[in-house]
Amino acid sequence: MSGVSGRRRVTSGDVAREAGVSRATVSYVLNDSPRQKISETTSRRVWEAAARLGYAPSAAARSLRKGRSDIVLGLLPDWPIEHVLGRLVQQLTDAFAEHGLTFLVHSSAQPARPVREIWKALTPAAVLALDAFPESEAGAMRAAGIDVVMSVHGSLRGRRRPPLVSEEPIGAVQARHLAASHRRLGYARPDLAGLGILARPRLDGVRRVCAELGLPEPDVRTVPFDPEGAVEAVRAWRAADPPVTGICAFNDAVALSVLVALRSLGLRAPDDMAVIGVDDIPGAALAQPALTTVVRDTDALARGLARRVVDALDGGRVPVDPLQDPLRVLVRMSA
């Protein structure tokens, strides 16, 4: 084995010398070129040489060869990266990998580098943002050669179009489940302004169902992650006229805060107040009582999002309507 210095990047020329073949042959083998017939013995020799030397093809060279980068840049807003968001990121990573694309994530939580610095450094094939961002930023990306810029949960600011994933059906499913037994519903929203892009449409879904069924407007309260604040919200719901007896919570974490507040007041779910969450986080089944929740198929959403990005990259027609989001109510003891 000839080897190379550890002080510089291993090149395809090093692999060619190690394997005793031409650089063109190395390129054909490592890029799996369909137009070239390379013997199995030669191919194996090239792969073994590349492995011994630790050769990694240049991303820039690969981008030039393919005519575009293989990176999809995912932009995360300043949200807590908890169980559900972490799972979605992993599923998006897997879904894009099935199309030969690499999903890289950047969070805007401070003190992160500005988004513009990130996409300029990476020049990705596409940008997939969870939150909305200015059309001026999207325009700058396209001017730099990033053809596909999409927003999952909101339109690009200043450019109205439906979100790729609609949150309104979640609130509607919650409300329909509770409306079968409760005549006044409340909505428990999170104590984090950045989550409004998710909370507002979910609340719209609850409002729509209440209006359709002739129920009063839902009583909306912010439920913080502290016992005193949650207790205050529960007391206000019970003091309402008519009193609130069913709570649609923004997610399971908020729903668990409501359950804790009920216990603190000597009340029980669902007898005194029914509670339904969203996401089926690991702690939902362990709650006292076990939490009823809305479950969504995040793997199906990840595959659908990847498919739309890939279709756009290939110049295909991308539907305007939101992705179909399979929802089901996992009934436990809280509602």
Results as ranks from 00 to 15, higher is better:
residue 259 L to S: 04
residue 49 A to E: 08
residue 329 V to R: 00
residue 222 T to P: 02
residue 31 N to F: 03
residue 118 I to A: 06
residue 182 H to N: 14
residue 10 V to Y: 02
residue 264 S to W: 04
residue 172 A to L: 06
residue 73 L to E: 03
residue 235 R to V: 13
residue 130 L to R: 03
residue 21 V to N: 00
residue 239 A to H: 07
residue 194 G to Y: 00
residue 233 A to T: 05
residue 7 R to E: 15
residue 174 Q to W: 02
residue 240 A to Y: 07
residue 8 R to F: 04
residue 108 S to D: 12
residue 173 V to P: 02
residue 163 P to I: 12
residue 88 L to D: 01
residue 19 A to H: 01
residue 50 A to C: 09
residue 105 V to M: 09
residue 98 E to N: 09
residue 31 N to Y: 02
residue 213 L to D: 04
residue 326 P to W: 11
residue 238 R to I: 00
residue 331 V to A: 15
residue 10 V to M: 04
residue 37 K to Y: 13
residue 176 R to G: 03
residue 74 G to P: 09
residue 63 S to Y: 01
residue 224 P to N: 12
residue 211 A to Y: 07
residue 71 I to R: 03
residue 254 V to R: 02
residue 285 A to L: 12
residue 301 L to T: 01
residue 196 G to R: 11
residue 232 E to C: 04
residue 265 L to N: 08
residue 40 E to H: 11
residue 111 P to E: 10
residue 124 P to R: 00
residue 297 D to V: 05
residue 84 V to S: 14
residue 137 E to R: 10
residue 76 L to C: 14
residue 281 I to V: 14
residue 305 L to Y: 05
residue 288 Q to P: 00
residue 324 Q to E: 15
residue 176 R to Q: 12
residue 252 D to Y: 04
residue 249 A to I: 00
residue 260 V to W: 08
residue 308 R to C: 08
residue 4 V to D: 06
residue 303 R to I: 13
residue 255 A to V: 13
residue 90 Q to L: 14
residue 152 V to F: 09
residue 156 L to I: 11
residue 209 V to S: 00
residue 209 V to M: 00
residue 182 H to A: 13
residue 318 V to H: 04
residue 91 Q to P: 05
residue 304 G to V: 10
residue 24 A to P: 11
residue 100 G to N: 12
residue 185 L to S: 07
residue 251 N to L: 07
residue 55 Y to E: 08
residue 101 L to N: 04
residue 66 K to R: 15
residue 291 L to Y: 06
residue 58 S to N: 11
residue 200 R to C: 02
residue 334 S to P: 05
residue 118 I to C: 03
residue 232 E to P: 00
residue 12 S to P: 03
residue 237 W to A: 00
residue 91 Q to I: 04
residue 37 K to W: 11
residue 173 V to Q: 09
residue 2 S to I: 12
residue 62 R to W: 02
residue 187 Y to H: 05
residue 196 G to E: 13
residue 289 P to V: 02
residue 213 L to P: 02
residue 234 V to L: 03
residue 25 T to Q: 04
residue 11 T to Y: 06
residue 319 P to Q: 06
residue 50 A to D: 05
residue 178 L to R: 06
residue 14 D to Y: 02
residue 292 T to I: 06
residue 222 T to V: 15
residue 95 A to M: 01
residue 22 S to N: 05
residue 305 L to A: 06
residue 226 D to S: 14
residue 334 S to Q: 01
residue 143 A to K: 13
residue 52 R to E: 15
residue 312 A to D: 07
residue 330 L to T: 13
residue 200 R to G: 09
residue 323 L to R: 04
residue 116 R to S: 14
residue 41 T to N: 14
residue 222 T to D: 12
residue 59 A to Y: 06
residue 272 D to A: 09
residue 47 W to T: 11
residue 277 G to E: 01
residue 331 V to L: 09
residue 317 R to P: 12
residue 103 F to R: 03
residue 187 Y to S: 01
residue 72 V to H: 03
residue 163 P to H: 10
residue 94 D to N: 10
residue 39 S to T: 08
